[in-house]
């Protein structure tokens, strides 16, 4: 189990950390900026959001505590994310042409834990509309981020995304992160 997954598993999911208003604002700004990067497809900025060992994780089951070694909807490190960006942008990625449009709203931001070194565990909720080939699809769920505080601001060591309809059935495939 990775270090970030361990921290997430050990954290009380209903805890509310006593943090200063500046920390709350900085974390919210980070989450809002991440949503904007996705919506605007700024892929260099997307990759720069993560630590070198960072993972984007969408579990297939609620009771999963780790993405490693089990089936997931998403379980991607930087290499996989780069592959996805390259593939979706390739001219022969016919199922992705024309590319989709995403619109996120992130809210209900509660900082769960602030470590002595400034690392953060934060939970929030999201809603995302996707437009693809004349159809709008809606996705909604819960984020839990493990953020490392670095000189360059917060970086995502682990982002867990629990879709409300995690078990499907899937009438679609997810080709970009939510």
């Amino acid at each position: 189990m990775g270090e970030a997954a361990e921290r997430l598993a050990a954290s009380d999911p209903f805890q509310i950390a006593e943090v200063g208003i500046e920390t709350q604002l900085a974390v919210e700004r980070f989450l809002h900026r991440q949503a904007e990067i996705l919506d605007e497809k700024q892929w260099d900025a997307w990759l720069a959001l993560f630590t070198g060992d960072g993972h984007y994780w969408m579990p297939a089951r609620e009771d999963q505590t780790d993405g490693e070694g089990v089936p997931n909807i998403f379980w991607e490190n930087l290499d996989m994310m780069e592959m996805r960006i390259r593939r979706n942008n390739h001219p022969q990625a016919h199922s992705q042409a024309p590319n989709n449009r995403l619109c996120h709203v992130v809210s209900n931001v509660i900082i769960e834990d602030e470590a002595a070194n400034g690392d953060i565990i934060v939970r929030s909720r999201f809603h995302c509309a996707e437009y693809l080939r004349y159809e709008v699809r809606n996705f909604t769920g819960k984020y839990r981020h493990v953020l490392n505080k670095t000189d360059g601001g917060y970086k995502i060591q682990l982002q867990r995304v629990d879709l409300v309809n995690r078990e499907g059935p899937y009438e679609y495939v997810l080709q970009w992160w939510l």
């Binding site: 297939a60 592959m83 016919h94 199922s95 499907g168 899937y170």
Partner: peptide, 26 residues
């Protein structure tokens, strides 16, 4: 050995698959 098979399963058959997505569309 399980991990290797799981890697393929993820890439080809998860709902985020970059492979089957193009099949489903075809």
């Amino acid at each position: 050995i399980y991990q290797r098979a799981l890697g393929y399963y993820y890439l080809v058959n998860s709902p985020s698959t970059m492979v089957n997505a193009d099949d489903l569309f075809n």
